[in-house]
Design a protein around this nucleic acid. Structure first.
Lengths: 216, 216, 216, 216
DNA sequence: AATGAATGAGCATTCATTCAT
DNA sequence: TATGAATGAATGCTCATTCAT
């Protein structure tokens, strides 16, 4: 699962895999199309042919990632689980996704130049949807995240929590020397879920105390 | 506080501010030295003159950021506060730092190409120290983060939590339309602290249950 | 024969010719790639594309020159001529080579930064081979150039003699106003050969006198 | 005698020595003013101050070298020696000069961009004088070098012979591992003189034969 | 006499992309 | 589909020189 590079017989897939791998480790801007083409064992021009340029690859990666995320959210809501179980399921499924397609997810998450106007048309929408889903999830557990004050704090916090492991990259293995096998990712999902749920409960109490204080 | 760009009379400071601002919004690799020089209203050559090249700017940014972080940690430990207060103080101080020097912190945090061998000599050390401090803090609250399994999950999670707001950038203002004033950042610090503490307590229970389960 | 610049339909050859011409008149370090590209009527990038950078051109020039020289030496030894004839043949062939590919030879000979460590790997070997061949030739005429004292004086002297005309460049035409036609180069080869042979005979007598002096 | 760099208390001399040393080993165009200033332990601006720019240093080096050469020629002619002795004296004195001021001579000899129009005003004159002196010397030994055919061949040949050892630089020591002490340079001067004289005598015979052939 | 910050043109190289084949 | 030569702009950096101090 680690080296997804040359996998894929189709040139288009090979390009996608090679690019994702390189973007993940060096960053989108630091990777050249020639490098991608070499790794994918494909002629440089094919990148323009298939993806309409370098940015087209990034768009495809983000798009694919988001389609998978959307599926996870929608399938879980469809099950009508109790709030806590729903959240645990989502976290578990997201972790599973990241585990299997690490580099694609890392690229999709980290290579979204939120700020830049030239890109925002495409990506702002993507991110917004992502956030909307999380907001729905937090609503389920009866937290009034529609209060923008708390919502704007807790929602990014939750997303960051889920992806925290992957944002630090290989460094984690270096510092703690852990084996990141399936069992590890199970523990990761469970721990993060607990962290989120217990943390949110704490916040809930905090908000209620504040509200009572204001009512007096 | 947002646009710190042209601030600083000294050319060296202007370069640093301009570069930080651009790195923060476009990423290190996507920013050119000419762009930095233009924004800093300085001749291109001055970048090499003062910083020994583009990478020298990034090094300086990361270095300065880390010195501030180190100070926060050390000053707080020196106070010998009870664990919970210590953690709340650190979160509050870190949030304060990020609030005042948003772009510098964002660059320092996000532009550490952990993976790349050519950079690792310098940055791996920086990151490691950062993590060591957090580990010390978590130890204080009696959590056995020396167990690499949990440590490797919780430590990155805590760091991600603290910086979550800043990692999402201007997008947050767009989605929730909140005013990020001092009061907001106070609430942010308090909320994140609670999230962390309550979450960690939840994990603690989880671990204890697991240990009991194993003992039986 | 003088202006070989735009000759060559292939871009690669045009670059090589343009570069040789410019290197010959201004020196390698003083010539810019843009200048070469302009003269070759080629895009700047093509230099890196074909030669892997500016230094690649110089390497190619030296390499080609040396292959021609090697051929001359080997073909002449193969003929098993009497020593004097062998030397005259070599001089004549070398002069012929320089006459036809003046600028290439000049660059190859003068642009070998013997001293610089960064280049030595490639060029020291080239020069050493050149010298080895000359040493063989001098051995043939029964001069004990293996005595490093004399060898280190006579070998460079011989090489300098052969190339003397070309090292001075266009200045010669200015000072003496001679027509450098084929007949001239024939005379040149014959004169230099005689200079070398008679000179060497003189040295031989000198050495013998010295040796007798020492024996007494 | 080898490392003349930091010698000279006066900044101007230190610059000259440092520059000569660097020019000699890397070539004029490949040496930067900053490098010179560093080696001379002098501020960069001093180069413009004393020499009116980088080229001013080269001009000074060539000028000083040529003054020494002129002196050698004039002093020798003044002695009214027999032709052969005159030539041997000149070679010996020139070798002595090169031995003592190797780097200055090497720079002066090799860094004369004969061909370039922008420099020619200054250097063509220098070189022409040099050649004139040699021509006078050869006339003394009754060789009709005024015949431009032979003059244009023999004069450069003689100059090349004298400087041959120095043109090859450190490579000579590498290939033959000789100790270049005073004794060695004495032998060098004697050998080169013999090479020249015997060679020239051979040419003289050649010319006479040719002339007789034509007369018939 | 000496400094060092500042300039602007120039350097070699690499970029993503295009296009004829 | 696939190639690889070709383009021209942009890359980070260094250059010799100037100038106020």
């Amino acid at each position: 699962m680690e080296n997804q590079i040359i996998e894929g017989k189709e040139p288009k897939e090979r390009i996608l895999n090679a690019a994702a791998s390189l973007f993940a480790s060096k960053g989108y801007a630091a990777v050249g199309v020639r490098e991608i083409a070499d790794l994918a064992q494909v002629n440089v021009s094919m990148i323009s042919y298939y993806f309409n340029g370098k940015f087209g690859i990034l768009k495809e990666i983000i798009l694919r990632y988001f389609q998978e995320v959307r599926q996870i959210y929608e399938q879980t809501w469809a099950k009508n689980l109790p709030p806590e179980d729903a959240l645990r399921t989502i976290v578990s499924e997201l972790v599973n996704l990241i585990k299997n397609k690490t580099i694609f997810c890392k690229v999709a998450i980290t290579e979204m130049p939120f700020n830049l106007p030239e890109f925002s048309d495409f990506k702002a929408e993507v991110v917004r949807l992502h956030i909307d889903y999380i907001k729905q999830g937090l609503k389920l557990i009866e937290l009034f995240v529609d209060d923008p004050k708390y919502g704007s704090i807790i929602t990014p916090a939750m997303i960051s929590l889920i992806f925290s492991h992957f944002l630090f990259g290989p460094l984690i293995k270096k510092v703690w020397s852990v084996e990141t096998d399936d069992e590890y990712y199970d523990l990761y999902a469970k721990t993060i879920s607990t962290l989120m749920l217990e943390g949110i409960m704490g916040i809930k109490k905090l908000i209620e105390q504040n509200n009572q204080g204001e009512q007096k």
